[in-house]
Amino acid sequence: MTGLKRSSADLDPRRRRILFRCWHRGIREMDLMLGQFAEQEIADMSDADLDALELVMKEEDNDLVKWITGADVWPERMDTPMFRRIAALRPDFDPVTMELSGKLK
């Protein structure tokens, strides 16, 4: 299950690559957090926004999860408009919780 609902056919190569990388982070929570964010926003992002998103994507998944969920305070370097936009999104974790409970097959 990738979670991807948006086609990347109309995106330029950079946006396609970023969208793919957001949905394939390594841990499912980050797939859902960054993947859903990118899916909603990628088409309308400026080059500066894409640069800022790529900087966020360089961070370790475990750190990002803690910062985005509020389990840990994010460092000053992450206090950027892009990171705040990502942290403001509340991803849909239903696919994960349903999968874990055995309700989704």
Rank of each mutant, 00 (worst) to 15 (best):
G70Q: 11
A52M: 08
L53T: 06
D94R: 12
E54H: 01
D61A: 14
D79A: 05
R85N: 00
A52Y: 09
M57R: 00
L53P: 07
P81F: 01
L89S: 04
A48N: 07
V56Y: 03
R85H: 03
D79K: 07
A52S: 12
P91R: 09
E60M: 11
V65F: 15
L55A: 11
T80F: 01
T80D: 06
V56P: 02
I86E: 05
R84H: 10
M78L: 15
K66S: 09
W67R: 03
W74E: 10
R84D: 11
P75N: 08
D63Q: 13
A52I: 05
V65Y: 14
D49G: 02
D63S: 12
E54D: 10
T69P: 07
D79L: 01
L50I: 09
L53A: 02
A88Y: 06
E76T: 14
I68P: 01
M57V: 08
P81E: 01
D61K: 08
E76H: 09
E76D: 12
I68N: 10
R85A: 10
L89G: 00
L55D: 12
T69K: 14
W74S: 00
N62R: 13
L64I: 07
L55S: 06
A87E: 06
A88G: 05
V73W: 06
W67Q: 09
E76M: 05
W74Q: 06
T80K: 00
L64F: 06
E76V: 14
W67Y: 15
L64M: 13
K66F: 04
L53S: 03
M78I: 11
V65I: 13
R90G: 07
R84V: 10
E60H: 13
A87F: 00
R77Y: 08
F83Y: 02
A87N: 10
K58Y: 07
D51C: 00
E59I: 08
K58M: 14
K58T: 12
D61E: 15
E54L: 03
D51L: 06
A52G: 06
T69C: 07
I86N: 04
E54N: 04
L55I: 10
A88T: 08
A52P: 10
D61V: 06
L50M: 09
D47V: 11
D47F: 02
L55F: 00
E60G: 00
L89I: 13
A48H: 12
D72P: 04
A71Q: 15
E60T: 09
A48Q: 15
I68E: 03
L64Y: 07
K58D: 13
D79R: 10
P91I: 12
T80Y: 01
I86W: 05
M57I: 07
V56M: 05
L64C: 08
T80N: 04
P75S: 08
K66E: 15
K58C: 09
D61S: 15
P91H: 05
D72R: 14
D92L: 10
R90V: 14
D47M: 02
E76W: 03
A71I: 12
